[in-house]
């Protein structure tokens, strides 16, 4: 989870930049402090005072003396990738240490690694670890055309028959359903690529009823269906009530008014903070991963560390309205 992680910014110098494929630059950076990385990690780069971009780390030196990142020039770039593609050796920039949202776990009976386009930057080093361990893995690399696909030679050299290419302009479009047809319940599946590809895999995965924990991709948490808005919080059988502001959780509001609640993870995973919703004016915006979809749809309980209440008028993107007249209310029932 990158949430709540403190970012340590430092200066880094560009050691080299070369084209790894059409529109993909491979940039080697050295930090003023060692940059220790591992497969699946990314670094954040400050492009401008108010613009930060994340790039996957392709590989790094064991002693932290350099990291290599891959950057695709995006046609719709607001400046991030254009800036990166113009870097020259000796240029300085501000970066974070490598951050890990997409860790590889060893020990699974079988692995499938799926990379689409520039997604190979994250997958490349995972494949290397699995190879060194003698694991049973398959690496699938999907791209528009060969010239647009980075690292093809070294991938062939390192992974031989374990590498499968699927190149659009050669008429070889990946059959996602067919691929998942060969995946069994103990296969771990790591993917990084265009949203459309990942969505197709996710849908086919659910359809095949494969275990969700085995499908791995970079996640940024469950951010909810509604924009956070303020709402009124009451407690059954108590005079105490308060307004929960958009940047505060119910749990924090409870603590602020002196109601003692149980909790542990404070990120919607453990279910220790579950409280019964006694009365609800609005809808519960479940933001946890503790309840099943079926449990969430009944709206009788919620994880107060992350979940919120929204007035029905405000769906995500519509912009929060702040007037007391539309404000939702929630009454909690503590036993």
């Amino acid at each position: 989870m990158s949430q709540g992680t403190q970012l340590h910014w430092q200066r880094a110098v560009v050691k080299s930049r070369r084209a790894a494929a059409d529109e993909i630059a491979e940039i080697v950076l050295a930090g003023e402090r060692p940059l220790f990385t591992e497969p699946g990690a990314h670094i954040d780069v400050r492009i401008a005072p108010d613009m930060v971009r994340s790039y996957s780390v392709v590989e790094g030196a064991v002693d932290g003396s350099w990291v290599k990142i891959g950057v695709r020039r995006s046609p719709t770039s607001r400046g991030g990738s254009r800036f990166m593609h113009a870097l020259e050796p000796g240029d300085h920039l501000e970066v974070t240490s490598p951050l890990q949202n997409f860790p590889l776990r060893v020990g699974a009976p079988r692995y499938v690694l799926l990379a689409g386009g520039v997604g190979i930057t994250a997958i490349h080093s995972m494949a290397r670890v699995l190879k060194r361990l003698g694991a049973d893995y398959q690496l699938i690399f999907v791209g528009r055309s060969r010239p647009a696909m980075a690292f093809l030679d070294e991938l062939h050299r390192e992974h031989g028959p374990r590498l499968r290419l699927s190149v659009d302009d050669e008429g070889d479009v990946l059959d996602v359903k067919g691929l998942l047809g060969q995946v069994d319940h103990s296969t771990e599946f790591y993917m990084c690529g265009p949203i459309r590809l990942m969505d197709a895999v996710r849908r086919a995965w659910i359809e095949r009823e494969l275990p969700m924990p085995n499908l791995r991709y970079e996640t940024f948490g469950n951010s909810g269906w509604f924009d956070p808005e303020e709402f009124e919080l009451r407690i059954r059988g108590s005079e105490r009530h308060t307004v929960v502001s958009p940047d505060e959780s119910i749990l924090e509001a409870l603590e602020r008014v002196g109601v003692e609640a149980m909790y542990d993870c404070r990120k919607g995973e453990c279910g220790l903070c579950v409280v019964k919703a006694e009365q609800l004016n609005g809808v519960i915006d479940h933001r946890d991963v503790f309840f099943s979809e079926a449990e969430k749809s009944t709206d009788t309980k919620l994880c107060v560390c992350v979940s919120r209440v929204a007035s029905c008028a405000n769906s995500a993107g519509a912009g929060a309205e702040d007037s007391a007249s539309t404000r939702a209310t929630l009454t909690l029932d503590f036993p």
Partner: peptide, 28 residues
């Protein structure tokens, strides 16, 4: 837990806490 150390079943609840895991060490 499966052989990668991921929790695959929690008897008392419908979902699995994604943080629940033990280390799986490289073995040859």
């Amino acid at each position: 837990y499966n052989s990668a150390g991921r929790c695959t079943f929690m008897p008392a609840q419908k979902t699995i806490n994604p943080s629940a895991m033990v280390n799986s060490f490289p073995v040859v």
